[in-house]
Structure formats: C-alpha cells, structure tokens
Design a protein around this nucleic acid. Structure first.
Length: 410
DNA sequence: TTCGATGATTCCAA
DNA sequence: TTGGAATCATCGAA
C-alpha cells in the first residue's frame, strides 16, 4: 500500500516483485515487469504492469512469498534497490513540494468570507456561530428574539460537535494508517500521507462549513429581514403621512427637512417615510382612476343633494369609503383635520377637495376634484408634472368608461 | 381560509 | 443617486 501511494515507490516496487524473469511459479509474467533483469526484453507495456498491480492481490499468499524469495535472491537486488530508493527520493521531493501549500485556496477563501460575514450584518457559519454564543447579533440590530437566539445557538452547538467529530475521525484515521503501514516508511513520506489525509478531511469540513453558513444565513434572513416582521404603521402615522401626501399632491417628494419632520411626528424612520411615499405615489397613480370615478360620483350626489334640496344623501346613498367621517360633504372648509381620519380609496387617494382648497395646486389639482370634461391633459407646457402625468390616464382610462360618471361630474 | 391592503426590498432606467 | 415599477411576505378584516 505504501508503495502504491508514491509514484516512484509504486513503480519500483512492482517492478521488483514481478520483474524476476523465469522465476519459480511465474508463468504469467510474460518475461518480467518493466524493471526486469539485465538480460530483459526491453520495455514492458505499461498496461501489463498495471495488470499485474490489479491482479497481485488475487494471487495466493504462496505465490507472493515465492516472488519475495526470488527477489531477495536476485543478484541485482542491491543495485536495483539503491536505484529505486533514488527514484523514490526524487518522487517524494516533487510530491511534497506540491503539497506543502499552507492551505487550500478555496478553503482560505471560505474562511475569509466567514470571518468577514461574522463581523458584518450577515454573520454566518463558524464566525457567526461563535459570535452568536457571545452577543447573538450585530450591534446595529440589537435583536432580542429568543427564538432566533435559540435556533442560532442550536446551529452553533451542532457545528462545534460535528467539527469535533471530524477532528476525532481524522486523528483516528491518521493513527490507523500510521500503525498499519506494512513496511518501513520514511518520516517524510509518512508526513506526506498524513497531510493527504488531513486535506481530505479539510474538504469535508469545508462542505460542512458551507452548509452551516447557509443555515445561519437562512435563519438570519428569516428573522432579520424586515419583511418578515412587518408591522402596519399606527393610525396616527398613516394620517400624518396621508396629510403630507395629499397636501403635496402636485409634488409628493419631500425635502430632507420635510421627511425629518414627518419622522419626528410619528416616530418612524426616514426610510419608512420614503418607502411609504414611494408606495403611495405608485399606488395612487395606479388607482387614481378608480378614485377619480368615485370622487366624481360623490361630487354629483353632493351637488344633487345641495341643489335639489330635499333628500339627505347621507341616508339614502351609500357613501364611498373615502368619505367616511367627512359628514358627507366634499366642500371642506380648509380644515386640515377634516381629512386626517379619512383613509382614502383603498388607501391610495386623498379627498380631492382637500387637495385643492388649501394648496393652490393649479389646474391639475382642480381636475381631481371636478374631473375634466374634455378628457384632455390640461398641461400646455411640454413636460407634465407628476400630477398631470397621473390624471389624464385616469380620466380617459377605458376601465372608467363603464359607468356614466365622467360626464356627470358637475 | 381567503383576499385585499400594506410595508419593505429589489431591479432598472434616467 | 433617485424614483418608478414589480414583487415579496405579512397583516387584518370578512
């Protein structure tokens, strides 16, 4: 086995064993191996040598002993032995030079990654697992989730116990190899064999580290990703944001100061404000047609109830959701509080009258309230404003044509 | 349980 | 870098 582990040693050993021409009980040697005696036939096909390697274990012990005896009695044995030792030395030096790399590059890369991750937010695997036992999470998050910590500790425990098992198995296997070498082996070669074993176990450990890393990252994403712990804003926060959005409908892009002001008002972060307004803009744009339609319906009914006297619309006609709490009137007198409690249609719209009455929005804001009879954009300038870009499509949207509301908006 | 609402993230274009 | 758009994943009412 030791001979086969080294290129030079393997070839030399085999040649000696099978290389005795005409040896007793060796009819199948076909004239000997590659290192046959001085009177040999020359080069032996490498295939035959390999065949001998493959079949030697099938031979009986008696045959092997006979070969060994023949070898020891061969007159060229001392010379062959010295040559083989030289070959072996050369092969060993070549082999060891290749294997004296300090560490597998891939393993180094992985370790570096794990260390880096362990310091950062996405801490994982060994570094993260070790860190988990100390502080559980990175300081910027201050997670107190007990479930998260227990699971992380579980991974940490499994990781270390398995790592110990690997170490133990590696040591046992190494000891086994060292104790069961069948022939004398030079210390350097033994060292090389051990390094090979360790390398193989390192590869296994690397895979295990990767698995652990994935497990920790999944765990973290599960618990730390804000989407997994989303909470709706408080009603007050939503109202404040709605108020801002509605009162700045023509340009709902707050300055930094305005954003900070909003955050101070209801204890939400700047990014939350930004997210909220971003969602609001896009959803308002999507549903503005819907809002427009219902606002028109409501405006008509309000107008009818006022001009027609008589029937109170609030009792006879169902008010759209956005009008809840408005007292059934869009004719708000400019009080900001009037619409604070009004969520708007699907949460995506503002009371139209509120928009225009307080903030000199210009023609586009008026269109929201009153609709646009001609269905054409009012912006005469080449570039439409945010609001202008929204409104026309909503008014002329085919989906809105199903009802007869647009032409009765006044 | 279903489904619309909603906060957050990601991708892409200007 | 910023905003629009799409999408994800959860919340909460019916």
């Amino acid at each position: 086995a030791a001979g086969a582990s080294s290129p030079g040693g393997g070839q030399g050993g085999l040649g000696l064993v099978g290389g005795e021409p005409g040896g007793p009980g060796e009819p199948s040697s076909k004239g000997g191996g590659g290192l046959e005696g001085p009177g040999g036939q020359g080069k032996q096909d490498i295939g035959d040598i390999l065949q001998q390697i493959m079949t030697i274990t099938d031979q009986s012990l008696d045959k092997a002993q006979a070969k060994k005896h023949t070898l020891n009695c061969h007159r060229m044995k001392p010379a062959l032995f010295s040559v083989l030792c030289e070959i072996k030395k050369t092969g060993l030096s070549i082999g060891s030079s290749q294997e004296e790399e300090p560490m597998d590059p891939q393993l180094m890369h992985l370790d570096n990654m794990l260390l880096a991750k362990g310091r950062g937010r996405g801490g994982c695997s060994a570094a993260a697992a070790a860190a988990a036992s100390r502080d559980s999470v990175s300081p910027d998050n201050s997670i107190e989730h007990s479930d998260y910590r227990s699971k992380l500790a579980q991974i940490h425990h499994i990781y270390h116990s398995e790592l110990e098992k690997y170490e133990q198995a590696c040591n046992e296997f190494t000891a086994h190899i060292m104790n069961h070498i069948m022939r004398p082996v030079a210390p350097k070669e033994m060292e090389r064999m051990v390094s090979i074993i360790h390398r193989e176990f390192s590869a296994i450990q690397m895979q295990f580290r990767q698995s652990t890393c994935e497990a920790v990252m999944i765990l973290r994403s599960r618990f730390l990703d804000a989407r997994w712990k989303r909470r709706n804003f408080s009603k007050q926060a939503t109202e404040v944001l709605n108020e801002y959005f509605c009162s700045h409908l023509s340009n709902p892009h707050p300055s930094e100061e305005a954003e900070e002001e909003l955050t101070k008002k209801r204890g939400i972060t700047v990014s939350q404000v930004s997210n909220w307004l971003g969602n609001k803009r896009i959803r308002y744009k999507k549903n503005s047609g819907k809002f427009q339609e219902e606002a028109n319906i409501y405006a008509v009914k309000t107008a009818v109830s006022v001009t027609g006297g008589g029937e109170g619309h609030s009792s006879t006609s169902p008010a759209p959701p956005s009008s809840a709490g408005s007292g059934g009137s869009f004719n708000l007198s400019g009080s900001g509080d009037m619409f604070l409690g009004m969520p708007g249609l699907n949460g995506d719209a503002c009371p139209a009258s509120q928009v225009e009455s307080r903030h000199s929005m210009g023609p586009e804001a008026t269109e929201i309230t009153s609709g646009r009879p001609d269905g054409q954009p009012s912006g005469s300038e080449g570039k439409l404003s945010w609001q202008e870009a929204v409104t026309p499509s909503s008014v002329t949207s085919p989906t809105e044509d199903q009802g007869a509301h647009s032409d009765t908006s006044h």
